[in-house]
């Protein structure tokens, strides 16, 4: 039984596409087959983050127009067995696809893959409705910032109204040192506000930008980097494993904080 999961956030720029690409790679690394659907028509980027942009030939629009078969449009990742991408059309807008059509594609893919991850565009308009049309469950990506949390709450409400009730939260770009200084909301704060179960905490890390620069998902690079570990943990939790959350605060024992503690801070 395959799972169709939409990755969404409401607000743009919180890391939906980064999450989709890294989580897709992490799932594939657990020896599961996974198809990533870029639902961001007109502003596609998932191909770029995966480093597959040069190999895109057909897009979802071509499949819907009957110009190619679904299997032809899928771009296979040569580094990871079982990971494929269905690219969005770049020269069209969101209105060129309807929810029913997206549903058809996702359900067709579900026959051949364990996981279908749909990268949702920002906003709550047609693009969003397309992306969630086939979804059985959702991963909400948010950052510990007011605008992102507010939008996440709105999207959770919309998903519940659409009957998507299996909703899990990923808190992205957590800066533990800021939380410690009470300058940023903690993961617990965000959880309390949103009231949906947590499935992952991803620390803010320069390595994420470096990895996107190279078009290489983090889990393919250094295995022990903290964000890579975070994505692998999410993949394992999706499989039903009980994996403890990373202790981000543990890494904050640098000279500065130790000095401060010495002075009673």
């Amino acid at each position: 039984m395959s799972r169709i999961i939409v990755v969404t956030s409401g607000k743009g720029g919180v890391g939906k596409t980064t999450t989709t690409s890294n989580l897709g790679a992490a799932i594939a690394k657990q020896n599961r087959s996974v198809a990533l659907i870029d639902a961001d028509f007109g502003l596609r980027n998932l191909d770029l983050l995966l480093g597959l942009e040069e190999r895109v030939v057909y897009t979802a629009i071509d499949v819907l127009a009957g110009e190619c078969r679904l299997a032809q449009a899928l771009v296979k990742d040569k580094r990871l067995k079982g990971l494929v991408l269905l690219p969005a059309a770049q020269n069209r807008n969101k209105e060129s696809v309807q929810p029913e059509q997206m549903k058809k594609i996702a359900t067709a893919l579900a026959k051949g893959y364990d996981y279908i991850l749909i990268d949702c565009p920002a906003g709550i308009e047609l693009g969003f409705r397309n992306a969630i049309s086939a979804a059985q469950e959702a991963l909400i990506v948010t950052t510990p910032e007011v605008a992102a949390v507010r939008d996440a709450d709105r999207v959770i409400g919309l998903l519940e109204a659409e009957g998507v009730n299996k909703i899990n939260l990923i808190v992205n770009r957590v800066k533990p040192w800021m939380v410690e200084e009470n300058k940023m909301m903690s993961v617990e704060d965000v959880l309390e506000l949103l009231g949906v179960p947590l499935i992952g905490v991803v620390p803010d890390d320069e390595k994420v930008i470096v990895a996107t620069n190279k078009g290489e998902p983090l889990v393919l690079g250094e295995y022990d980097s903290l964000p890579a570990q975070a994505y692998l943990n999410i993949a394992r939790r999706l499989e039903g494993e009980k994996v403890p959350f990373l202790d981000l605060m543990a890494n904050q024992g640098n000279l500065l904080t130790r000095l401060r503690r010495m002075f009673g801070g």
């Binding site: 510990p144 507010r150 009470n182 909301m185």
Partner: peptide, 17 residues
């Protein structure tokens, strides 16, 4: 600013909902 953000969000989210 952490508690500031939280209390503001509590209010606005309740309104939104």
């Amino acid at each position: 600013s952490r508690s500031h953000a939280k209390s503001r969000l509590k209010l606005i989210i309740a309104h939104d909902r």
